[in-house]
């Protein structure tokens, strides 16, 4: 037996082990996604077979998706959800970029102390603030408005903190050069710094988007009508005066999950990078 064949055998055994290992994790991952699978399967069942225990109903009722869509104005909830999440993410990004620029590039009194105060609020649960925020919104007449959904949560320290971390990784010389050429601060920020920060910007944007899209407690408190409801709130509306229709709830849940799936598939690189660099977002 030559050393060559030993090496080939060893490699072959390693390949087999790799595939076995992969198969094992595939099984675990499949079990892990079972709730989503069940959600989808239930969405296709007739109403009286939801609790029948079998994976497939006696028929595949695609009609359920249409019913869920019309029973409550689900299209409206999705449009609201997108609008609030996009506007909220845009506002969060703009605010964070401006603040982070000041904290990382400008020199002013109390800068470090102020930044510490910002960072300290990272550990503040937002739930602590909902009662006073609600009273403020009510006094100002903003209950049941998009503004109430978007504005109060666009100023969290998270975005500023994350952006500052990224700003600090960019050498200041680029801007110095631009500044000497007479460019204003805003212009430098826009045309010199931001183009180098596309990835972090989309990370922050995506996380803010997800935060808004999935938010439940605050919309539950501040939204009164179906006209302004977002998707998570809409999902609970299937439980009404006359009870829950589980197959339709699951159809609606499936619809609600789809945008998140798209985000994961399309933006997985940014997401993974954002989590590993910023560590926390989307909570």
């Amino acid at each position: 037996m030559t050393s060559e064949t030993i090496r080939i055998r060893a490699r072959r055994r390693r390949t087999t082990l790799t595939w076995l290992n992969t198969a094992a994790i595939a099984v675990v991952a499949l079990l892990f996604t079972f709730p989503f699978l069940w959600m989808f399967l239930t969405a296709l069942k007739p109403a009286d077979e939801v609790f029948s225990g079998s994976a497939l109903g006696s028929q595949l009722r695609w009609q359920n998706f249409a019913d869920a869509w019309t029973l409550v104005p689900f299209g409206r909830f999705i449009a609201n959800g997108f609008f609030v999440a996009i506007a909220g993410a845009a506002l969060s990004v703009v605010v964070a970029v401006l603040s982070a620029y000041a904290f990382s590039r400008l020199r002013f009194r109390y800068r470090d102390r102020l930044f510490l105060l910002y960072v300290a609020t990272l550990v503040l649960p937002q739930e602590v603030l909902v009662v006073p925020l609600f009273i403020m919104m009510n006094e100002a007449g903003y209950v049941d408005t998009y503004a109430a959904l978007i504005v109060p949560f666009a100023f969290t320290a998270f975005g500023t903190f994350l952006m500052r971390q990224f700003f600090l990784t960019i050498p200041v010389e680029y801007e110095e050069a631009a500044r000497i050429d007479g460019a204003s601060r805003v212009r430098t920020l826009w045309s010199v710094l931001l183009p180098q920060l596309r990835a972090p910007l989309s990370v922050l944007g995506v996380f803010s988007f997800i935060g808004y899209w999935n938010s439940y407690l605050w919309p539950l408190i501040v939204i009164n009508t179906q006209d302004k409801a977002t998707v998570p709130l809409g999902l609970t509306m299937f439980t009404g005066e006359h009870g829950t229709q589980w197959n339709l709830v699951m159809a609606a849940s499936t619809i609600a999950v789809v945008p998140s799936l798209f985000i994961v598939v399309l933006l997985q690189r940014q997401l993974m990078k954002g989590v590993s660099m910023g560590g926390f977002g989307g909570r």
Binding site: A79, N80, F83, A87, A90, W190, L194, R198, G205, K228
Partner: peptide, 25 residues
């Protein structure tokens, strides 16, 4: 996010806002 993308996004959001306000009338 480039300037062009940002502009498109802002336009889209504004459009959506107008549409939503209109049907929420």
């Amino acid at each position: 996010m480039t300037v062009r993308h940002l502009t498109t996004t802002v336009a889209a959001v504004t459009g959506l806002a107008v549409a939503l306000t209109a049907c929420g009338g």
